[in-house]
Simulated scan of single mutants.
Amino acid sequence: MPAAKTALGRIAPLAEEDTLSLGERAYRRLRECIVQGVLPAGRKVSERSLATQLGISAQPVREALRRLEQDGMVVTLPRRGTVVAEMGPAQLAELGRIRAALEGVAAALAAERMDAAGLSRLAAILARMKSGTEAADHDALDEANEEFHALIHRATGNLFLIRSLGSLRAYDNLGRHRAIGSQPRDLPKALREHRAIVAALRRRDPALAEARMRGHILRSLVTNGVLPPPPRRRPAR
């Protein structure tokens, strides 16, 4: 899908060669525009205007806005119509904790259900993560990270969990977009955490996979400024 980033309030039209349904493509593009700030919080949106900018009819836009409202990314207000929802630090922190819990559940299920082919694909992704870490290539790491988690989600076979995590990852991206982001010194730590998660999956240990995944997500949320650092433990006397 072509990049959605453009001038504030302007949305790139959808490409004809995309093979997803118009409703799905519109949903993904508008969600991306909200995450990137192209459609900022409080901005009023209308089906007709969005359809014109996307180069499609109003029906798939109506479908996309309905899904975005279910995700909490837009709201319908009396006498104002549909607007992009305000998403403050406290809300992002709450959603981050929810995502950490669900990602842990997904890892536990994947430890029970992922087949050998899935584990091999994870190993290949880890190799790309290693290269991206050594080169400090954030774009390559972001792409590999998305594939890593999506593969674990699919291995659960739980459609409700997959959809819930898909919605929550949009908020995670929103939090990262607003934050400073990971520093080069944080990248090796993330690679070690991903390797530890894969090791738990290979051991078919659901409890260990869940704990490692949840810890990884919470640590990344702290790194990206979505969650505050945990309080330091006082040394025992």
Rank of each mutant, 00 (worst) to 15 (best):
H138G: 02
G81M: 11
P231D: 14
A4Q: 08
G23N: 07
R25V: 07
S120F: 06
H138N: 05
R128L: 06
I11W: 02
R79M: 09
R48I: 13
R99Q: 12
L119C: 06
K130C: 02
I217T: 08
E143N: 06
A207E: 14
V45E: 01
L151Y: 05
R10E: 11
A209D: 03
G181S: 07
V45R: 04
A236Y: 10
R29W: 04
L151R: 02
K189A: 15
L218N: 01
L174N: 01
D142Q: 13
P2F: 10
A207K: 05
R10D: 07
S46F: 09
R48L: 14
Q59S: 15
Q91I: 11
G88L: 03
L20I: 05
A4P: 04
H138K: 13
Y27M: 01
L218R: 06
G132W: 02
C33Q: 02
H153Y: 13
L20N: 06
K130G: 02
Q59G: 14
H138M: 12
M1G: 12
R80Q: 15
P2N: 14
A123P: 00
E193W: 08
L109H: 03
R31Q: 09
V222H: 07
R195W: 01
L159D: 14
E210L: 06
Q59I: 12
D139C: 08
G23C: 05
L161S: 03
R163E: 13
L141H: 03
A58E: 15
